[in-house]
């Protein structure tokens, strides 16, 4: 199975992500792959009996390996499984940011931020952020077949295993995001060039994995646009703007602000403002909202759901009318 997965990983490096958990019973004494607590917890999650066992997106399992060292037929079967899952879409986006900090004499520390965003409304009830550390491409010898191969993404740590370390995902609305910050020691016995951080959005009720993201820690960017401002501090993390200019003070830099110079708050449907960028809520907004109900075209900055019930309809018009008659505040 490892050979089949290795082939698939080389074929689909951006859309297939894996981790190997090594059964303590098969872990050689000279290695440091033995993580019995982690193995027990992850294998119990999927009711793993014997090995090899692969679990796909947390919900589909395959048990058994290649006989007589002929792994190619496993590749064909599992490629079909990959293609079934590869066409699925997810509302979650996971982004990794981090920085490897060397410390004198001891293991360096990797500080990271994981940003989870929703592109669509989606209930995150029961869903958590799982974080793993893996080391890729450890040369291993397959004694049964007398061949060497790269063991891919060998599990080194499960950062969110303990109950105190669990990270529930709390966002549920389109456009919302959540940031989790953490750190881990990077053992000097690991090849630092091949250490990866892995993040999953996994539902603990169904075990389904809705999204995954992984990157070599040395490739995780701290400043994507290289403007000297770290991503989390940057008001336009993908567009270089070392001056952080923000004309309308909405914490979105001018260079990437699609609504620059406009002030959208609940009730200010047309986004107009006075010279001090204070929003103006008046009868023009009532007409603008009425227009929207007739022809629902709006820009991404507008906030039209005055009733905050998830729908934009005539009831919002009534709330806005009342707001205006009471002075627009």
């Amino acid at each position: 199975m490892s050979f089949a997965l290795d082939t698939l990983l080389r074929e689909f490096p951006n859309t297939l992500m894996t981790i190997e958990w090594h059964s303590p019973g098969f872990t050689p004494g000279w290695s440091d792959f033995d993580l019995p607590d982690v193995y027990d917890a992850r294998s119990n999650l999927y009711d793993v009996g014997g090995i090899p066992h692969t679990q796909w997106n947390g919900i589909e399992s395959f048990v058994g390996g290649a006989s007589n060292c002929v792994w190619e037929y496993m590749y064909n079967d599992r490629r079909n499984t990959y293609e079934d899952y590869a066409v699925q879409e997810s509302p979650y986006i996971i982004e990794l940011q981090g920085d490897l900090v060397d410390s004198d004499g001891s293991s360096p520390v990797f500080n990271f931020d994981v940003i989870i965003s929703l592109e669509d409304d989606f209930s995150s009830s029961g869903t958590v952020l799982e974080l793993f550390v893996a080391e890729d491409s450890i040369m291993a010898y397959w004694s049964a077949c007398g061949e060497e191969h790269n063991a891919r993404n060998v599990g080194r740590a499960w950062l969110t295993m303990d109950e105190d370390d669990q990270v529930p995902i709390t966002i549920s609305g389109s456009g919302q995001s959540q940031v989790h910050s953490g750190s881990f020691d990077v053992s000097n016995s690991w090849n630092h060039d091949r250490v990866k951080l892995i993040a999953l959005a996994q539902n603990l009720v169904t075990n389904e994995v809705f999204q995954a993201q992984t990157e070599l820690i040395l490739n995780i960017p701290t400043d994507r646009d290289e403007d000297g401002i770290t991503n989390l501090e940057d008001n336009c993390p993908d567009d270089a703007n070392p001056g952080q200019e923000d004309l309308d003070g909405d914490d979105i830099g001018d260079i990437c602000d699609p609504c620059n110079g406009l002030v959208y708050v609940l009730g200010n449907v047309n986004g107009d403002a006075n010279e001090g960028y204070d929003p103006i809520v008046d009868v023009i907004d009532l007409l603008a909202l009425s227009d929207y109900l007739e022809d629902p075209v709006y820009n991404e900055c507008q906030m039209l759901d005055l009733l905050e019930d998830g729908e934009i309809n005539q009831w919002d018009l009534i709330v806005l009318a009342d707001l205006i008659m009471n002075g627009g505040s």
Binding site: M1, S2, S23, S31, F33, I93, V154
Partner: peptide, 23 residues
């Protein structure tokens, strides 16, 4: 229909956990 058309979703990564042994 608009909601469905406007829903923006990214591709879901295929995630595999491999329980195995290393010789």
């Amino acid at each position: 229909r608009m909601l469905v058309e406007n829903a923006s979703r990214s591709q879901q990564v295929v995630w595999v956990e491999d329980f195995t042994g290393l010789n």
